[in-house]
Design a protein around this nucleic acid. Structure first.
Length: 1120
RNA sequence: GGGCCUUUAGCUCAGUUGGUUAGAGCGUUCCUCUGAUAAGGGAAAGGUCUCAGGUUCGAAUCCUGAAAGGCCCA
């Protein structure tokens, strides 16, 4: 006996029961034991930032990750189940600052770096616990840490990082300080997720940087970069993302740069960043632009012709000249009186330079150049040997040397500068200007450009030749081309355009800025000597210990983070001076990029690394990752091994709300993961995710979820519920190894099942999970709306009356059982919960030796004996013909309940005619007709049309095709059609040339004569006899009556096998119909009694009028 | 300015190596079926396949250019 199954099911509640079950039987650990010796399939997880609860967009990626893991595990592989958390970097700092109410770096320093570090680690522990719970709720099977364990570490590290604790690990008990334990999360002795703040991760990055340094790829560079004054840090090329720009309005100024050698004449210059004028050194013009000299009153101005409209008031053009003509003109700068200008030689340097990038879209066509305040400006200063004046410190205040501006914040100087310029007579006009301006993507502060020293890894020169001509010698010296090499040769991208995108990024990638002027993150292993300028890179903890000259004791026992690491000093390898580590921390993409090495124990257990490297799969969302994780992952594995870290990368797009907008908390359209899980159910969520074409943005929401549930979950569940309901009524159980005498329909659905198994396997192996779900949905439709609907009566048949019927019924049960069991396995990677419910009930209740979980089962393979393409084709024809028959009924306005005398078909070819005869009974039943036959094409219902097929004839005769087609149209269709049907060729004459056309080159179409209840499609016709005899009418009425009794049974909530008594009172013709078809009605409604009576017996009653007949009736359940 | 992607029904999307009647789901309207089904079936309405050229007997599909949108870079 199976556990009864209701069609009214609470999927969410059921999912929680399954989670409990998995925990109770420790299902995941059992799976790992089962696959412990199996061949490997390697997965490397892209770390999720452990800084917030998960959003539904994380669910998307995790659904894929779990899908492929489960699929591969069922195929018999042991896989790598390590989740990753991204733990270091500015985003964690920003959130901790927010919690502590800090607004500047100074407050962090006052708070103390050691305390701040602990807070940051706590932040990560807190949210990794939350995300772990959420991922488990999604059904994502990974080597999770117990969330309570993470929370316990959160508490303890907050109390005292140095206190000693003992914890259980996979290899036994482990004892150490809390800080040590936290720093070893994810390591073999502790297991669980990897955390990028682990000691191993940090030290492995050291070895990467060391390896770069040995090849001369590490250098300190000076650059002007986008800078957040609040965070006190630059934003690298990696980080300025879409949201890095905002529409903002700023006051812009147009001002005079008086020309020294032309009295009374000035350049007109425009800027939206007045603070940069303090550091102006040059003015740039476009060499090929047209410039004009205009007179306004007593003054003469120069500007480009295309920007004349910006002038206020009347003007007169007095001269035209090319930009090149202005090169070298000297001018007086707007702030030449400032000491900073004087000291660095600004006034002497001021001149007009040429720059191709100058345009006329805005401003005056003359661009003010301040190399200390802009990236392009800085580049130009190198080209033209201009002084670099940098006005701001890292917090956005003017530095010494700027007189009255010194110590003012950059945000408050615009107005005073305008005033100052007006007093000096340089101001021309001030206007508000709206533009897209870069902001800090973490704190939304407006960015400025700031001159700063940063550390870089050289990507290598961009050579002026195609990749194919780069020599091995050049590659050895050049990281860029090594990375392109491993990507081209060893990686596969899904979708495939990912490869092009990644290569494009690599071709154009600038040197990788790896430093950050912050506190919490990788301690860059660079010790720089103040006295000789040399720097040393340390490649490991051991190397540091060996070279330490002071501070080692203070550091030992701590994780390699600030402030403890900063205590360690080494002797400069060049001059022997005691040197300190640079204060910078690392770019967080170093942390994420190294995991293909660190988490595979590259430095600690090389044989393990060799077994699992490279990953068979990585998968992440593609916006951003080409230049972030994919890039850094490839970079680090290329640096160390010159190998690709993964074979396949599966990427997907962006998750949006149902209206197609990005989800934002502040917009109120954000859906919390937990809320979604408990409203939709995670099986539905997962189906929604996986069913979507990955490279397209996914619009996610409750309506979509309802649709997915209706389209997929409910039909699946209903088939399952149907099976269990009737199997229980009959006490049916599967018998192992039994080969029942399958009916045609059974063999058909089993053949379709085989098809499904092959197709889903192929799709998953090709990384096309969305196509796999399409295949499943089509199958479930066939199963539910054809197989089961057509088979219902076989299940209803009364048991024990007749041997043939019992055998047939057993075949039907066996078939449906096999389908459901196989389906539960096919679907296990997609919707792991609902299929576990099915497995437990269908399989475990009848076979205690069966796998404890559906997820321990093996992936289905097609059963050879079940394959039957011919049968599938036949059934497809039958389905199509039935569909046409329904259409014909509809056109003739004959509803299905009314039996008709006959349906007649025309099909091309004798084998299809045989199919009609073979499925005679099915078609009759489906269309409710008494007889099915073939149309006599000569006399009945149809006429022929010929169609010269373009594909065949076009390819064969090319340009002659149109004429041939016309000739075919002119043929007498009946006789030509007869020939073609008989398999003979026909001939057409075109301009004196005779063409012989094969039967497969001309399609014979048929059309129904007007006035027939017939539908034609291509070569097919379905026609109905719509004449109604009295007998047919009465039978129709009987069916109407049955329908109404069934309706009442349902309303009365009787069981499907309850016996009933019916009494009725009907008008004359209806009463006759009921009387004549009494047996049929009783059989259909399980009525032991059917009596005409003026007084109705039974508490459930109904009355109705239809087809001009009156009816009242009552039903009563007979107690069993 | 450069790279990649997208543009097909009211909405969301399919559309195989080019083949002449461009499909599905949802939504709307009408009809219908139901002994598992908040299901199912049939039909109607709804398309200048973003635009302009080109190649071809034939273009949603290939080529060129343009426009709009997205992602990335400069």
């Amino acid at each position: 006996m199976f556990k009864p199954v209701s069609t009214q099911v609470d999927f969410v509640k059921q999912e929680h029961e399954i989670l409990d079950l998995w925990e109770r039987i420790d299902a995941f650990a059992a799976l790992k034991r089962l696959r412990a010796k199996a061949p490997r399939w390697s997965f490397i997880d892209g770390p999720i930032t452990a800084n917030n609860p998960m959003g539904v967009h994380h669910g998307w990626g995790r659904a894929y990750k779990d899908l492929f893991h489960r699929f591969k595990a069922m195929q018999g592989y042991q896989t790598r189940y390590q989740n990753g958390f991204d733990c270091q970097g500015l985003w964690v700092e920003v959130n901790v600052e927010r919690e502590l109410g800090f607004n500047s770096k100074r407050e962090i320093e006052e708070f103390g770096l050691a305390n701040f570090l602990t807070r940051c680690k706590q932040q990560v522990l807190k949210y990794s616990a939350v995300q772990t719970e959420q991922s488990m709720r999604l059904g994502y099977w990974m080597d999770w840490n117990d969330p309570d364990f993470l929370r316990d570490l959160y508490e303890k590290i907050g109390q005292d990082p140095s206190q000693e604790i003992t914890v259980d690990g996979p290899l036994g008990e482990v004892t150490g300080s809390v800080e040590w334990v936290v720093g070893h999360l994810g390591m073999p002795e502790l297991g669980g997720s990897y955390f990028t703040f682990s000691d191993e991760n940090n030290y492995t990055i050291w070895s990467v940087i060391k390896s770069c340094e040995e090849r001369g790829w590490v250098y300190k560079g000076r650059d002007v970069m986008p800078w957040c004054t609040r965070c006190g840090t630059g934003l690298s090329q990696h980080e300025i993302v879409t949201e890095g720009y905002q529409e903002l309005t700023h006051p812009s100024i147009t001002l005079r740069f008086p020309l020294i050698d032309k009295k009374g004449e000035s350049l007109l210059v425009w800027t939206t960043t007045p603070w940069t004028l303090t550091s102006n050194v040059a003015a740039a013009v476009g060499p090929d632009l047209e410039y004009v000299k205009v007179r306004q009153g007593e003054e003469y101005f120069y500007l480009s012709e295309g920007t004349l409209k910006m002038l206020k008031g009347e003007y007169e053009v007095v001269e035209r000249l090319k930009g090149t003509a202005m090169e070298g003109w000297r001018y007086a700068g707007p702030f030449d009186e400032l000491p900073a200008q004087q000291d660095l030689g600004g006034p002497e340097a001021h001149r007009v330079i040429l720059w191709d990038e100058v345009g006329q879209e805005e401003g005056t066509g003359i661009v003010h150049i301040a190399p200390g305040c802009g990236a392009e400006d800085f580049r130009l200063s190198k080209e033209h040997d201009l002084p670099v004046i940098a006005p701001l410190n890292g917090d956005g205040y003017f530095v010494e040397g700027f007189d009255w501006l010194t110590a003012l914040n950059v945000k408050e100087v615009a107005e005073p500068i305008f005033k100052n310029l007006a007093e000096k007579g340089l101001r021309y006009k001030v206007e508000d200007y709206t533009h897209r301006y870069p902001v800090c993507w973490r704190c939304r502060e407006e960015l400025v450009f700031h001159l700063v020293d940063e550390w870089y890894i050289s990507m290598g020169e961009q050579l002026d030749k195609p990749y194919s001509e780069v020599t091995e010698e050049e590659k050895v010296a050049n990281l860029r081309y090594q990375m392109m090499e491993v990507v081209k040769e060893d990686t596969h991208w899904h979708p495939s355009f990912g490869l092009e995108r990644e290569l494009d990024w690599l071709r154009n990638m600038h040197d990788w800025m790896i430093s950050k002027k912050r506190y919490y993150g990788l301690a860059l292993p660079i010790w720089e000597c103040d006295s000789c300028g040399n720097f040393d890179v340390i490649g490991s903890k051991e190397e540091l210990r060996d070279r330490a000259v002071e501070g080692w004791e203070e550091f030992e026992g701590h994780s390699p983070h600030r402030p403890h690491i900063d205590a360690v000093k080494i002797a400069c390898s060049n001059c022997g001076e005691v040197t300190s580590r640079i204060p910078d921390v690392g770019n967080p993409w170093l942390d994420a990029g190294v995991v293909a090495m660190s988490t595979l124990r590259y430095n600690s257990d090389r044989s393990y690394w060799e077994e699992w490297f490279p990953a068979d799969l990585i998968t992440e969302s593609f916006p951003g990752q080409f230049r972030n994780w994919f890039y850094s992952l490839i970079a680090m594995s290329t640096i160390l091994e010159r190998r690709a870290p993964f074979r396949n990368v599966f990427t997907y797009a962006t998750l949006l709300d149902e209206e197609g907008r990005a989800m934002h908390k502040s917009w109120g359209n954000m859906i919390e993961f937990n809320e979604a899980a408990d409203k939709m159910g995670v099986d539905v969520m997962r189906w929604l995710y996986i069913n979507h074409k990955p490279e397209k943005d996914l619009m996610f929401g409750y309506h979509r979820a309802d649709e997915a549930r209706r389209r997929f979950m409910i039909p699946l569940w209903n088939v399952y519920a149907f099976f269990v309901t009737y199997a229980n009524i009959d006490g049916w159980k599967p018998v192992k190894g039994q080969q029942p005498d399958y009916a045609e329909l059974d063999r058909w659905i089993l053949a379709r099942l085989n098809q499904l198994v092959s197709e889903v396997t192929r799709r998953l192996e090709n990384f096309e999970p969305d196509r796999a779900t399409e295949t499943v949905e089509a199958f479930i439709d066939d199963l539910s709306n054809w197989y089961l609907r057509r088979s219902r009566r076989r299940f209803w048949a009364k048991a024990g009356l007749d041997e043939a019927s019992d055998a047939d019924k057993n075949a039907a049960y066996t078939t449906l059982y096999q389908v459901l069991v196989t389906l539960s396995r096919i679907l296990a990677p997609f919707t792991p919960f609902v299929v576990e419910t099915m497995h437990q009930n269908l399989v475990r209740t009848v076979d205690e030796g069966a796998p404890e979980s559906v997820h321990h089962c093996e992936w289905p393979v097609p059963v050879k004996a079940w394959s039957d393409q011919n049968l599938i084709d036949e059934m497809a024809l039958v389905q199509a013909l039935v569909s046409m028959g329904h259409a014909a009924r509809n056109a003739a306005n004959r509803k299905l309940r009314q039996p008709l005398a006959e349906a007649a078909f025309r099909v091309p070819g004798s084998s299809q005619e045989a199919t009609i005869r073979k499925y005679d009974e099915l078609i009759r039943d489906e269309l409710n007709v008494k007889k099915v036959r073939l149309l006599d094409t000569a006399t009945e219902a149809i006429e022929y049309r010929l169609k010269a097929l373009p594909k065949q004839l076009g390819q064969k005769y090319g340009a002659k095709y149109p004429a041939i087609r016309q000739a075919v149209d002119r043929l007498e269709p009946e006789s030509a059609a007869e020939k073609l049907i008989a398999g003979e060729t026909i001939e057409v004459d075109v301009e004196g040339e005779t063409f012989t056309l094969e039967p497969d080159e001309v399609e014979v179409r048929v059309e129904a004569h007007r006035g027939f209840a017939a539908v034609a499609e291509g070569p097919y016709v379905a026609a109905l006899d719509t004449e109604l005899s009295e007998a047919l009418v009465l039978e129709g009425l009987a069916r109407e009556f049955v329908r109404r009794v069934q309706e009442l049974r349902k309303q009365a909530d009787f069981n499907v096998d309850d016996q009933i008594e019916v009494s009725y009172n009907a008008s004359e013709r209806l009463a006759e119909a009921i009387e004549r078809h009494k047996d049929y009605i009783q059989g259909e409604t399980i009525a032991v009694n059917l009596e005409a009576s003026s007084s109705l017996a039974g508490e459930h009653r109904a009355e109705d009028t239809f087809e001009d007949e009156q009816l009242e009736f009552a039903v009563r359940r007979i107690p069993s």
